[in-house]
Design a protein around this nucleic acid. Structure first.
Lengths: 164, 164
DNA sequence: GCTTGATACTATGATTATCATAGTTACGAT
DNA sequence: ATCGTAACTATGATAATCATAGTATCAAGC
């Protein structure tokens, strides 16, 4: 295909995230990294993707400072991949993706357990469930429960795109 | 390219979400729908994508029961696109994607406002910020704060993939 | 009644991303 | 000296995406 349209120069934060998280390969690679599969072959096997794709994406993620390549042995020299703080903060996104699938996208046969992946909060021991909550009042957040206020710059950008 | 590897028949909920959310076009289209741009041309212009792509993705999302096509006028007959409950529950994912970008992926020039999009909880009025919290103790959730417990089926699947 | 405009798409050909498969490099071990 | 392991790179086929243009249906204006 022709070069895909550039999205990263937008005031919309979601557009910028979509630019590189809107990619099956990236999501799967991040999953492996969160599961502590740090080595190239483990990532390749865990994702089922070809090595060129994995290689290309890891390089890209490294450039974006999401992933860091560190040697884990000297002879022969071998590198493993680790999440940077910026990459670790992507946890929220993968966590919420999991939430949605546990509720809506069922596995082929299902189910021995309530969840395919159960998450327990290390701090208090609670099962964190599949919802997100308001930090102040604790009520469930979701579609319609929040009001979006656009910055002037983003509002202008959106308006311009709708003009004919 | 050859048909891409099928991901949906996995016990991993994240893999199933990645199958169709791991796509720039889908994320952008959902953004427009959450912003109440329901009509085809509004979606096309708002995303900057070609009409064939938008058309193909909307059909796909309709098949997955994420989007619903409803007539908004009779003559000439015209349809608009709306999120189903399943689609509305994707809000959490887009919300958290926005959180990450507000913190890590800056816009070209920045910044007139703290956030490009500020979210206020309709229930209590609070700015919901950019973090997610434990529903029980209210502490911040993130990388390392939760323990993942895999179901037996998913654990077996992961083990099988790592075998040589 | 003929043209213009709006809306919602579909069709075409060029270009590029991804795939499966195989090959490469560097070393350790047998 | 060959085999094995780990981490990739190279190649050619195929499919997805893009820009651009075109189709279909009706309303409204001249």
């Amino acid at each position: 295909m022709p070069a895909r349209t550039k999205l990263s120069d937008t005031f919309c934060p979601l557009g910028r995230t979509a630019e590189f998280l809107g990619d099956r390969a990236v999501i799967l690679i991040l999953r492996e990294l969160f599961f502590k599969s740090a080595r190239f072959d483990a990532i390749t096997r865990g994702t089922g993707l070809g090595p060129q794709l994995v290689s290309a994406r890891l390089k890209m993620l490294e450039q974006h400072d999401v992933v860091e390549r560190r040697p884990y042995q000297q002879r022969p020299l071998r590198y493993a991949y680790h999440l940077t703080p910026k990459g670790q903060d992507l946890f929220d996104i993968l966590y919420v993706m999991r939430n949605w699938a546990e509720k809506w996208a069922y596995a082929p046969q299902e189910v021995e357990a309530d969840y395919a992946v159960q998450y327990l909060h290390r701090g208090c021991g609670a099962d964190v469930g599949t919802e997100i909550h308001c930090p102040q009042c604790g009520e469930r957040l979701g579609f319609g429960t929040v009001k979006a206020v656009l910055s002037p710059a983003l509002a202008r950008e959106r308006l311009a795109k709708q003009a004919v």
